[in-house]
Simulated scan of single mutants.
Amino acid sequence: MKATVLIRPKEAILDPQGEAVGEALRTLGYAVTSARVGRLVDVDLEVDDPAEAEEALAAMSRDLLANPMIESFTIEIEDGA
């Protein structure tokens, strides 16, 4: 099963990289009020049950992929249809 974990800085955390991207976009003439920069992790799992996959990915995210003190994460599981 294929899945994606999106990891972003929490709203209360400063994001210098996002600020730099937002400023660069404004300099280029884009009407951007803010930007946040995160990371994306694609994962192939050896499970067939979406609930099991989500549980495993949440554990992986808490244990390794995200720093829960300063980052939040969302999980997207690819529809096998």
Score class of each variant (00 low, 15 high):
I70C: 06
L28W: 09
T27D: 08
E19I: 05
P50I: 03
E76M: 04
S61I: 03
Y30E: 13
E46Y: 00
G22H: 11
I75V: 15
E54S: 06
E76S: 13
Q17P: 06
I13D: 01
V43D: 09
L40E: 15
V41M: 10
K2Y: 10
L57I: 10
D44L: 05
L45Y: 11
D49Q: 11
D15Q: 06
P50Q: 07
M60Y: 05
P9L: 14
M69F: 06
A58W: 02
R26G: 07
E54F: 01
G22V: 05
V21N: 07
G29F: 07
G18E: 07
K2E: 13
M69P: 00
S34Y: 05
F73H: 08
D44E: 15
S72E: 15
P68M: 05
P50H: 07
R39W: 01
A24Q: 10
A35Y: 08
L6M: 12
L57W: 09
A56H: 02
L65T: 02
E71Q: 13
I13Y: 01
T74R: 13
E54M: 06
E23S: 12
A24I: 10
Y30G: 02
L57F: 08
G22K: 06
N67W: 06
G22Y: 04
D42H: 12
G29T: 09
V5D: 06
T74P: 00
N67E: 05
I75N: 11
V32E: 09
A53H: 06
V5T: 01
A59S: 13
E52W: 00
Q17T: 09
A3W: 03
E52G: 05
E54R: 15
A51T: 10
M1D: 08
A31P: 11
N67L: 04
E54D: 12
S72F: 00
E52Q: 14
A58P: 00
T33N: 14
P16S: 08
A66K: 01
D49P: 05
D15H: 08
F73C: 04
L28D: 01
L14G: 01
E52S: 13
I77G: 09
